[in-house]
């Protein structure tokens, strides 16, 4: 196995929120990410899925240190990023980039897209002809070199996302965080961007952290998948195995909730209906954070937090009853 590009260990991020009650100001802690460890192998795609508030975006941003982790370690090609001086971090940033969900919000409406794509080259003081590089990048993402003179509003959503990808590629990174890169796009357009990302990975040997709430896209693009719930990773495994034989009740419920584009499947499948909604990360439940919605919860779940344990199949699960999940909740229903 090749050396991992990114190694995250025990990553924790807590935010302080203030709320005023009359003259009293109350400070509370939001436990956005708690003790998350994951590895992105070289040239591979790791999918990170979870519902809103699960902390998946925060993990992505902590890895790039766009926000400072509260605790834990993030290693990029062996170099510890947490605590790294700004000067050294800036150098490493050439190699790690991000693509955001909303390409309209992340492109300056007053800059030509050529200028937007060239901006990282200027910031990093890259030598050579920036215009040529922009033309090359545009072709790489399936746009025409003369598009460089146009403005973001002249592009469709799919084209704008291609511009976002071109900008992320400008500095020849080895690792890209893709934060919901296709969620804002219509399905017929989505497919083209997903294909592009896969082609680029193959051509350029990129490693991806693919963050999304759409489980079917994640399955399609990822080599392995980590599932997050309320700031914790509850299950990690090879994509196909996770979808066909998940061993965490939350993963099961999540997969069974995704409607599939087939009326026969939809009408026959058994769903695990979860009660209620995700609790607040300000005051997460004791023990297992999923227990308040879990159909299998027992007394121990509120007392003891289940560790993320690999039971020998390269597929770690954080559940006291991981072995019993398949029996209790029936055979898997995948998205």
């Amino acid at each position: 196995m090749t050396a991992p590009v990114v190694e995250v260990a025990n990553l924790t991020k807590e935010f302080t929120v203030k709320s005023s009650h009359g003259l009293r100001v109350i400070r509370r802690t939001v436990h956005a990410v708690s003790d998350v460890s994951l590895t992105v192998p070289s040239g591979k795609t790791v999918g990170l899925v979870g519902e809103s508030g699960s902390g998946k975006t925060t993990v992505g941003r902590c890895i790039l240190r766009l926000i400072e982790p509260t605790a834990g370690s993030v290693k990029f090609q062996g170099t510890e990023l947490v605590g790294l001086p700004a000067k050294d971090l800036r150098k490493l940033r050439r190699s790690m980039q991000i693509v955001f969900q909303d390409p309209y919000a992340s492109l300056d409406p007053k800059m030509t897209i050529g200028a937007s794509i060239a901006e990282p080259l200027q910031i990093q003081k890259v030598e050579g002809n920036h215009q040529d590089r922009v033309a090359e990048l545009l072709e790489l993402v399936g746009l025409a070199p003369d598009h460089a003179r146009r403005f973001p509003h002249e592009f469709s959503g799919g084209q704008r996302q291609r511009v976002g990808v071109a900008r992320a590629l400008a500095l020849n990174p080895s690792f890209i965080v893709l934060d919901e890169p296709v969620s804002a796009l219509d399905v017929s357009i989505q497919a083209g961007v997903v294909n592009l990302l896969q082609d680029l990975q193959e051509q350029l040997g990129l490693s991806y952290l693919f963050i999304a709430h759409d489980l079917s896209v994640v399955r399609h693009i990822s080599d392995s998948v980590a599932v997050m719930y309320l700031g914790k990773v509850v299950e990690v495994g090879p994509a196909e195995e996770l979808y066909s034989a998940s061993a965490h009740p939350y993963t099961r419920a999540l997969l069974s909730a995704v409607p599939q584009a087939d009326p026969i499947v939809e009408r026959e499948r058994q769903r695990i209906m979860l009660q209620g909604e995700v609790p607040s990360p300000i005051n997460p439940p004791s023990g297992c954070r999923f227990r308040t919605r879990c159909p299998m919860a027992q007394e121990i779940c509120s007392v003891e937090e289940p560790a993320l344990i690999d039971r020998g199949q390269g597929h770690p699960v954080a559940c006291h009853f991981a072995e019993a999940v398949a029996v209790t909740l029936g055979s898997n229903v995948s998205a």
Binding site: S188, V194, N195, S216, R219, H220
Partner: peptide, 14 residues
Amino acid sequence: SQPTLGRERLSPIP
């Protein structure tokens, strides 16, 4: 254009 099981490439509408 929907991702489905066991298909390597998606087919977007151009």
